[in-house]
């Protein structure tokens, strides 16, 4: 289940050390032809060298993935948008510290996760009250429907609603480990707690989610009855 998620920023070759062409366009001019054909690493290299369009292209390519991470972790549309804004500004400015031993998407993903967790921590410090509730907004959080088959969208809405029932600590741990594929140790490093705490939060989160998502298994003709052990 664990994907290869390397700690961004560790590695031998910072992008800043790689020479690149001087920028020839500005942000209000059209992108250089052929930019679309470059891979993420090349685009990031051009961004560091001054190309005004390269970073925007990287973000456009991966925006739905990064939105999924943010909305699941934050559980609130405005908070997710704010976290992505913080993350993109941070990534834009720190791009020259990216080292080539991780994929650009992994690096971006990690920055988004950290921006989400920073916002959650700030919110917890500022106010004891939880993020705004409201199950009726889950469909809105799941974004436009037209591209998704009904069943896929229904599951997105289900999981976003269910995740909102967890407290922020459980939700962060469960999203990182169970949904985003970080190992328990990696998640512990990101969350700043012991691996045992991450495992405990995940276990409690799954126990809370089970009755909310169990119909996934029964509607698929699964073997699980509705009620066993959930009362």
């Amino acid at each position: 289940m664990t994907r290869d998620v390397t700690d961004a920023g560790q590695g031998p070759v910072p992008l800043a050390a790689v020479p690149g062409p001087a920028a020839s366009t500005t942000a209000d001019q059209p992108p250089t032809p052929g930019l679309d054909d470059l891979d993420d690493y090349e685009l990031l290299r051009l961004h560091v060298a001054g190309d005004p369009h390269a970073f925007g292209l990287i973000v456009q390519r991966h925006r739905d993935r990064l939105w999924a991470v943010a909305i699941r972790t934050m559980g609130d549309r405005d908070e997710a948008a704010d976290a992505l804004q913080d993350a993109f500004i941070s990534a834009f400015r720190r791009a020259d510290s990216f080292r080539g031993d991780a994929k650009v998407t992994t690096w971006l993903h990690r920055i988004v996760v950290n921006a989400c967790l920073d916002r959650i921590r700030r919110r917890q410090v500022r106010a004891a009250d939880p993020l705004p509730e409201g199950e009726d907004r889950a469909a809105e959080m799941a974004g436009p429907a037209q591209d998704d088959p009904a069943e896929v969208r229904e599951r997105q809405v289900d999981v976003l609603n269910a995740l909102k029932q967890l407290n922020p600590d459980q939700r962060s741990a469960l999203v990182l480990v169970d949904m985003e594929g970080y190992s328990v140790e990696e998640a512990a490093g990101i969350l700043g707690c012991a691996p045992g705490t991450v495992k405990s939060r995940c276990a409690r989160g799954r126990a809370k989610l089970l009755p909310l998502l169990r119909h996934w298994q029964t509607t698929r003709g699964g073997k699980t009855p509705e009620s066993a052990g959930t009362e």
Partner: peptide
């Protein structure tokens, strides 16, 4: 079994993108 299956379902759901609102 259901908890084990839930784990697999969450991993599968986690691989899905969610369209960013316009």
């Amino acid at each position: 079994d259901a908890l084990i299956q839930l784990n697999a379902d969450l991993a599968e759901e986690g691989r899905a993108d969610i369209p960013m609102p316009a």
